[in-house]
Write a protein that binds this DNA or RNA. Structure first.
Lengths: 156, 156
DNA sequence: TCTCAATAAAGAAAATTTTTCTGTTAAATG
DNA sequence: CATTTAACAGAAAAATTTTCTTTATTGAGA
C-alpha cells in the first residue's frame, strides 16, 4: 500500500529515463532483477506510473510557438464549466489545460507552428465557444527548464 | 533530413505510448520490423525524440499543490538573466520554467506537497534570489488535460 | 534502354530483455 | 520455538531488440 524507499528510487529513475532495463535498475540499487520487476509491475498496476511516453522536440518538427492562454468564462454555472472542458479536450493544439483558482478560470498551454496558426487557433477554436468572456495570451521566448518528473525526495 | 509520413506516424505513436514494440508499430503501419527499427533509431539519434520517460501521478505520491508562479526581475541585464536561470534549474520543485515575452519575465510551474511547502518554496528559494522584484502565484484547482505530446498533423 | 548506385524494406539469426517459475532467506506472528 | 508470509535470488522460457544478409524499387547517367 505504502511505497518504500526502493519504490521511490525506481519511480525517480524511470521518470528520468523510461528506457532503463530491469538489469540496469537492479544493478544500480544492489538488487536482483526479480524484486525490481515486481515493484515496477506494482507501480504500473496501481497507476503510480500513469504511462510511458517519448518526448518529442517541438521545434524540430516546426512548432515554433508555445504560449499560455488564460480563459475567463461568462458564467461559472456547472453546465458551462462542463461544456468548456468537454470542448477543450479534443483540441490538439492544447497540450495542457488547468482549471485555476483566482482571476482566470482556465490556463491553457498551446503549441502551434507559427503566429498565424496561433491567431487562427484563438479566433476559430477558442473565441467561437459559447461561454468564453476573455482570452489573454502570453508567449514563451525560451524554454529554460522542461521536466516531466515530479519532485521525489529520497531520504538517505 | 526531412521526415516523411511514416516518420511522423511513428513519432505520434511513441509520444502517446513509449512502450510500443517494433512489432506492434510495424503491424499497425503495414511494415516489417526493420524499417520501423531504423526510423526510430534515426529519430533518436537526430533528437527528434528527446528522451523516453515514465509519467508519475503526482497526487498519488502526495504532491497536492501544482501552481504557476510568475517572476519579475529587478533588472534585465544579461548577467542578471543568466544568474536567475542558473539558480532556477536545480530547484526540483520547479518542473518547468519559461522566459516570457510581456508583462512577466518568467513563468514557473511548481509542484510541492502542500500549501506549507509552497510558502516555504517561495519565501526560502525564490524570494532569496538577488534580483527578484515580484512573484505572483496562481493555483491549479484541477487538471483538465495534461498531455506531453506535441500536436502532429498526419495528412491522409 | 541499360547499367549502376542508392534507398527502403523484408527476413532470419544473434543478443538482450522481459516474464515466469521455483526455491531460499529473513522477519514477524502466534 | 514453530510457522507463516514477504522479499529476494537464480535460472529457464518467452518475447523483443539488434544485427546482418538479401531483395525490390527508384532515379541518374552513359
Amino acid at each position: 500500500m505504502k511505497l518504500d524507499l526502493t519504490d521511490l528510487r525506481i519511480l525517480n529513475a524511470l521518470q528520468q529515463n523510461g528506457k532503463l532495463t530491469m538489469k540496469e535498475l537492479a544493478g544500480s540499487m544492489g538488487l536482483s532483477i526479480t524484486p525490481v520487476y515486481e515493484r515496477i509491475k506494482y507501480l504500473e498496476k496501481q497507476k503510480y506510473i500513469k504511462k510511458y511516453v517519448a518526448l518529442v522536440d517541438r521545434k524540430k518538427i516546426g512548432k515554433e510557438i508555445l504560449a499560455f492562454a488564460s480563459v475567463t468564462l461568462t458564467s461559472h454555472q456547472r453546465p458551462m464549466i462542463e461544456q468548456f472542458e468537454k470542448e477543450v479536450l479534443p483540441l490538439k493544439e492544447v497540450m495542457e489545460c488547468y482549471h485555476m483558482a483566482g482571476v482566470m478560470d482556465y490556463l491553457l498551454k498551446v503549441c502551434v507552428d507559427d503566429m498565424d496558426a496561433y491567431q487562427r487557433f484563438v479566433v476559430n477554436k477558442l473565441a467561437v465557444m459559447e461561454n468564453i468572456a476573455q482570452v489573454h495570451s502570453w508567449f514563451i521566448l525560451d524554454d529554460i527548464k522542461t521536466d516531466t518528473s515530479v519532485p521525489i525526495h529520497i531520504p538517505d
